[in-house]
Amino acid sequence: MAANDDELLAAYVDGVAELTPEERKRIEGRLDELDVAGTRDMIQQLRALPPEGTEPDWRALQARIAKAVDDAPRPWWRRWFVPVGGLVVIVGAALLLVTMRHDDQPARAPAPIATAKAPVIDAAAVPVPQAQPTELWLDGQIVDVGDADPEALFDDLDVPDAVADDTLTVDELDDKALDNLDRWLERKKS
């Protein structure tokens, strides 16, 4: 808010030091026109007014204030500051201690893993299973391969020589033999 020059007159009269240099300069340029004396007189009358009322006994008032302050419940943050702060410090110290102790300890070997021991079985007590005949489901019938002639098993399957000859390996087969083998496998699948 920009004040007119005359609006700062009372402030100039009562406290010239509190005006800015610019404000002071503006007022001082118009002092002849303004009622400086009347304003000063009014302010002096005001300042001369005695304070209202009869002042109390200040020592007694201090004592009352001290007692009231002592009796007053402290604000919540002061009530909780000591217990909560103490708890935080204790927990922090404990954590620090645990961490330091953990760091100081040499690296220990991992705890041994408990190994289960197989129970000792009396061989004589276990019954020996009887040998079973080796049977295969082949071409819609069960064939006991235990007694069968291996050559006879594949007689009717028109097996290529490459398959029948178990002494050959795949690496030793030529292209034609491989083709034959593929065709035979396809036929078998279908």
Partner: peptide, 15 residues
């Protein structure tokens, strides 16, 4: 500044 202006008008009004 407003305080200074109010002070001036208070004194003026009392007069």
């Amino acid at each position: 500044n407003t305080a200074k202006v109010n002070f001036h008008y208070a004194v003026k009004k009392l007069r």
